[in-house]
């Protein structure tokens, strides 16, 4: 009984290590093909459309509401200390440092990541990937790498849009509805939000999330069991793994960037 349990534990450990190894081989192959894709921008623009443009609506709307909630909650707390003028700082710092990159990554994982996994998984299940290989076309370079690069490029842009819309949402609630002084809102924000420490670090974070989310999504699709059940499982796994990876990685990156 105990031995059975141990064997099962060992088997799942070996399986996980194997998958991790395959995922890294795939990452290497995609990076090898990156130069080729950059020379054919058509391939890339189609994926920027799929990942970027199609995610724009959900990112914009979410950013607006998150910013508005931050404005409201921040005001309720700050006004007790007579520091309502700091609302701009609170909203902007929270968005630029954390919520912008993280929430964008989670939304992209749900919106675009799952679609990528399903697309690649279905292409595998319907033998399209084998078909490409038989046409002497490398499916990793031709199909996966453009999506990978598209994700990496789209993610920081989406995060920037999320944060910018969020700041405007916070401004709307704080200044427009609650009567915080507009000058103080912006000047305090500008005084406290640092370009390098906050904005650039936020961009670096979202690039890292872009790599992780698209990598996981593509690997789950490429490694799927080629049946309809397998594809649906991979799609679920893609979102769950991507969300966990983003949150875990966020902690590590935050510790590296802000924890002296």
């Amino acid at each position: 009984m105990l031995l059975d349990g141990l064997a099962r534990l060992g088997r799942s450990g070996i399986g996980a290590a194997e998958r991790l190894g395959r995922a890294h081989l795939l990452l290497g192959a995609m990076l090898m093909g990156a130069g080729e894709v950059l020379r054919r921008p058509r391939l890339l623009s189609a994926q920027l459309y799929n990942i970027g443009v199609l995610s724009l609506l959900i990112i914009g709307v979410s950013g607006l509401f998150v910013g508005m909630v931050l404005g409201l909650q921040g005001y309720i707390t700050l006004v007790q200390f007579g520091a309502a003028e700091s609302l701009g700082v609170v909203v902007a710092a929270a968005l630029v440092r954390e919520l912008g990159p993280v929430v964008t990554a989670l939304l992209v994982a749900g919106r675009a990541g799952s679609a990528l996994t399903a697309e690649i998984g279905l292409m595998k299940a319907t033998e399209q990937l084998s078909g490409l290989e038989m046409m002497a076309v490398d499916p990793v370079r031709r199909i996966l790498t453009p999506r990978f690069l598209g994700g990496i490029i789209a993610m920081p842009l989406l995060a920037a849009i999320f944060s910018a819309v969020g700041v405007l949402g916070g401004y709307f609630v704080g200044v427009g509805l609650l009567g915080v002084d507009a000058g103080a809102f912006w000047s305090q924000m500008q005084a406290k939000v640092d370009f390098q420490d906050d904005i650039l670090n936020g961009v670096i974070k979202s690039v890292a999330f872009g790599v992780v989310v698209t990598w996981i999504a593509l690997f789950q699709g490429y490694d799927t069991v080629p049946t309809s059940e397998g594809v649906s499982r991979s799609t679920t796994r893609s979102v769950v793994h991507a969300a966990l990876a983003v949150l875990g990685l966020d902690f590590v990156l935050t510790a590296l960037m802000y924890g002296d």
Binding site: T126, Q128, G131, E133
Partner: peptide, 23 residues
């Protein structure tokens, strides 16, 4: 190797059971 295999595959055509057309 991969390059030689891909060169050889250009001289092969394969008709898959499902057709495997790019959707």
């Amino acid at each position: 190797g991969k390059a030689a295999l891909y060169r050889l595959r250009r001289r092969m055509g394969m008709l898959f059971q499902s057709g495997a057309l790019l959707t």
